[in-house]
Amino acid sequence: MDPLQFLVPFGWLSAVGPALPYAILVMALANLATRHLGHRHHVEQAEEGDAVEQYGPHVFTNFGLALLSFLFAVHAPTSGTILSFLVVTMVIADVFEFEARNVEARNDMTVEAPKSAIVTSGLVLLYASYYSLFFLVEGFWNQAIVA
């Protein structure tokens, strides 16, 4: 009997739990793509005016990645907590980088790439790909550990 079964009635999560790492990997890849498109959008907005707006698809992928990582923390507590920590760090970095883009746009400065958010999203992608694609290197990994 699971001690959380009465507090968190997520019986459906056991059915979709094994697919969550792959969904997280796809969402992390989509997040990197929308991050690139959002930066191009911010550069165009800064050239036209003195403020930038949030890029909708990127906000969606941030929210989706956070939701999936929190669900994964219920399914696989240790790995999900590590991933959730990385995702929350990425979202916080996005907030600060967005404000930095606004300051650059208002002061007619060149709009730089969101470096800290790129690094944290790269870490999210790295961990998500490690967890979901581990079966590709599992044989080699087990041989390296034994030898």
Rank of each mutant, 00 (worst) to 15 (best):
A19W: 14
L20Y: 05
Y22K: 06
A23V: 06
I24W: 06
L25R: 01
L25W: 00
L25E: 03
V26G: 08
M27N: 06
A28Y: 11
L29E: 03
N31Y: 11
A33L: 14
L37N: 07
L37S: 12
G38L: 04
H39S: 02
H41E: 07
H41A: 06
H42R: 15
Q45K: 07
Q45N: 02
A46P: 02
A46R: 08
E47L: 14
E48N: 12
D50W: 11
D50L: 08
A51I: 08
A51L: 13
A51D: 13
E53H: 13
Y55E: 01
H58T: 00
F60Q: 06
T61Y: 03
T61I: 07
T61C: 05
N62I: 12
N62Y: 05
F63P: 00
G64M: 02
L65C: 01
L68S: 01
S69Y: 01
F70Y: 09
L71N: 07
L71W: 02
F72M: 01
F72L: 06
A73K: 00
V74L: 13
P77M: 07
T78F: 14
S79L: 10
S79T: 02
G80M: 01
T81L: 03
T81A: 04
I82Q: 03
S84T: 10
F85H: 00
V87P: 00
V87S: 00
T89Q: 11
T89H: 03
I92T: 08
D94G: 14
V95F: 15
F96G: 12
E97A: 15
F98K: 06
F98M: 06
E99T: 07
E99S: 04
E99W: 07
E99G: 10
A100V: 07
A100D: 11
R101I: 00
R101K: 14
N102S: 10
V103Y: 15
N107M: 09
M109C: 08
T110G: 07
E112T: 13
K115V: 10
K115Q: 08
A117D: 03
V119Y: 11
T120R: 06
T120C: 08
G122Y: 08
V124T: 09
V124S: 03
L126E: 00
A128Q: 07
A128S: 15
A128F: 09
A128G: 04
Y130T: 10
S132Q: 01
S132A: 14
F135T: 10
F135D: 09
L136V: 15
V137Q: 08
